[in-house]
């Protein structure tokens, strides 16, 4: 069975203030895959996500999402940011935060008092019981799940999460991975993480942002194997160990065995 390509980078280079961040980067992922984008802090993961979302434009090369330019499919992408410079005196309820996910351009978004997609997103992210609560009154883990719900409110074909478990306790991590496990196979999921040792066992594809020895980075597909020796309580989910010494060709997912990186 042939899966359509969700994200394709073709020889993409990107510089910020005359410093090369990404150079000659090519990779692709298929629809409905669960992808871990792995690399140390400062490797350019967030830049790569911004390129996928159409918030940055490559200096050379081509980025395609669902076969089109990223900007033209922005409405199909749900994004959960890593940091949010949130002012705790901002008066807003959980429900209103999630409604923001329905917004497109200068449209009016979700005007009805109850919006079916918002209800579904609140249920999926397991925050329906918090809908009337002020966002500022939530714990860090609850806030992150609300931001997942906001990203889900637009029924995204591609869900992007930037370091979703940063500063989270294990219980919150567990709940988040349960939510993501329920979403697997319904949307393409791309998670950026700075943990270069292990990623969630939900992962189909491991993409590592690797330094090329000249200061700039590119993306390499790596193999991964189940890490049964790592207790679930350490990461909030079963994990796989990334084999950094085993590079896979970019078409590893497309051959007849179609094993991808990890199952």
């Amino acid at each position: 069975m042939e899966h359509k390509v969700a994200i394709r980078f073709e020889r993409v280079s990107f510089s910020h203030r005359e410093v090369d961040v990404l150079r000659d980067t090519s990779f692709h992922v298929h629809e409905k895959e669960f992808v871990a984008l792995v690399g140390p802090n400062g490797a350019g993961k967030t830049t790569l996500l911004r390129l996928v979302m159409g918030l940055a434009v490559p200096a050379s090369g081509k980025v395609e999402v669902f076969g089109a330019s990223p900007r033209s499919v922005q409405a199909s992408i749900g994004y959960v940011p890593q940091y949010m410079n949130f002012d705790s005196s901002f008066p807003i309820s959980v429900e209103e935060v999630v409604k923001m996910g329905r917004l497109v351009g200068l449209g009016r978004g979700c005007l009805e008092k109850r919006c079916a997609d918002v209800d579904t997103a609140l249920e999926l992210a397991e925050v329906a019981d918090l809908r009337k609560r002020p966002y500022a009154a939530l714990s860090g883990g609850q806030r992150r799940r609300v931001l997942v719900a906001r990203a889900l409110a637009s029924n995204p074909r591609l869900l992007i999460l930037d370091e979703p478990t940063a500063n989270m306790d294990v219980e919150s991590e567990k709940r988040l991975y349960t939510v993501l496990g329920n979403l697997k196979k319904t949307a393409t999921i791309l998670i950026a993480t700075h943990d270069t040792g292990f990623v969630s066992a939900l992962t189909d594809v491991v993409l590592c942002v690797t330094e090329d020895g000249k200061g700039s980075h590119h993306v390499v597909r790596h193999a991964a194997v189940p890490a049964e020796d790592v207790p679930v309580d350490l990461y909030g989910s079963h994990v796989v160990r990334i084999l950094h010494d085993t590079d896979l060709p970019d078409d590893a997912c497309c051959n007849t065995e179609g094993q991808g990186a990890a199952r």
């Binding site: 979302m53 918030l55 900007r71 922005q74 409405a75 992408i77 994004y79 940011p81 949010m84 949130f86 901002f90 807003i92 935060v97 923001m100 996910g101 917004l103 497109v104 351009g105 200068l106 906001r150 637009s154």
Partner: peptide
């Protein structure tokens, strides 16, 4: 006002 970066991902100018 709440999250400028996110609003940009929704195509808000």
């Amino acid at each position: 006002a709440f999250d400028e970066e996110f609003s940009r991902t929704r195509g808000v100018p």
